[in-house]
Design a protein around this nucleic acid. Sequence first.
RNA 1: GGCGCUAUCGUCUAGAGGCCUAGGACACAGCCCUCUCAAGGCUGGAACACGGGUUCGAAUCCCGUUAGCGCUACCA
Length: 484
Amino acid sequence: MSHAPVRVRFAPSPTGYLHVGGARTALFNWLFARKTGGTFVLRIEDTDRERSTDAHTRVILDGLGWLGITWDEGPFFQGAYGDRHRADAERLLATGRAYRCFYTKEEMDAERERATAENRVARFDRYADLPVAEAEARAARGEPHTIRFRVPDEEIAWLDAVHGRISFHGRDMEDFIVLRSDGSAIYNMAVVSDDIAMRITHVIRGDDHVSNTPKQIALYRALGHEPPVFAHVPMILGDDGKKLSKRHGATAVGDYQAQGIFPLAMRNFLALLGWSPGGDREIIPDAELVGLFSLDGIQSKPAVFDLRKLEWMNGQYLSLTPSAELEPELRRLLDGMGVATAGRALGPVIDAAKVRSRTLTHLAEQVAVRLDPARARLDDKGAALVARLGDRFLANLALVREALAALPADGWTPDAILAAITAAATAQGVKLGDAMQPVRVALTGGTVSEPVNELLAVVGRAVALERLAAGVPPRAEATPAPVA
RNA sequence: GGCGCUAUCGUCUAGAGGCCUAGGACACAGCCCUCUCAAGGCUGGAACACGGGUUCGAAUCCCGUUAGCGCUACCA
């Protein structure tokens, strides 16, 4: 083990969005780099020209930025290093660690089919022992061919930083292609060539790469380099135990950003998915995360992504964040919803709604209704209440409105409002709840909110009295229903 | 099929031979608070996959079984 300064890399391929698994891998790399005072390199593996797009690259960069994962070097684009990849592959050829292979795709497909039918492993070793002179002659004639790496017939083992010792044997691996017939490098070749060139000391990546690792180690050795430390972090699974994918719902980091999840909550949640500092920590301040992080706290079994817990955690961050800090982003969201916020103090409204929200978008919806109760829509619970109270709904509403109208503008405080409603209800023999709930429905369309007197205070006297006079809000359009 | 990895409450996990009649968190249920819903507090149900060893003693170490997952491309 060397004492060279730590250099890690995150190497996504821009063939899709930044998903939560990739984000967590990036986070672990970042955490490890910060913890060790090392360098975090970002490398975009865009060698699959068919599927790579600039749009995906941008989304990945944006996602990392949103999560606060900053890179010290890069982004480098793997596609730019084709010459070096080829040179490394040819070095393998020159030292006899690789050979020219003249199978056509059709021949290989046929062999693969035969092998499957005969229930055996496909073999592609026909050219392994072709005399070099003959191979060179055929190549010189322009005969299309690939370059295949000669896998050594020996045990290839390493001490994985999360799994401990993992061992493969060369005899279980076929000689694999390192250079395509068009001269471009195959994944394992490109990765090793780049990781050597970028002096990567620790490769922290997904578990799905463990079977690539022995091949890469063999490549390192054949190229005359010491392999880095490998740390294979387990997969993230959906709630059905299968690898997390689109059909499990939101898997892209951008989806969570759009849902109003805080980047810090996402970091906290992702960090704890497959890693633990030991003990009972759940909400870990970001500043402590780096100090706490270590590779051996990484779990060796896969973890199921639990959206509920993410939302709970986001709610924790929401309640921890002062309203003033929430305000700018909230104003932006409200503008997008068509709610005018200019010149209006949001602090009290945010405070009122915050404790009942788990995401920023949910919070924005609640704030929007308080700022502009005209946008309230009757929901199922609200409708049920209207139905249950029948005539008393409007009667109680009128009772409350009358009592509140008597309050002077400068006496519009939660305490005064509560006193007025309580007095009116008591005088008329109306249960307090039967007086309060209609107000709640009239103002929000639903039966859920902060205490009614606080709701009224936040909405303001003029608008509140107007809404109480208007009665039952219109039904939400999706489910039209008769309104009392 | 071959190779590899993994196995503690439904889920995330603590646990590195005695501290474990297995702890915390999410979720769930009940209670308190209360005009509703949250938040908060309290309480409850809920797990060491199975079988063999090793040991005075095993969730922890070893072996096997079973199950799940990953890889098995001129994709990355």
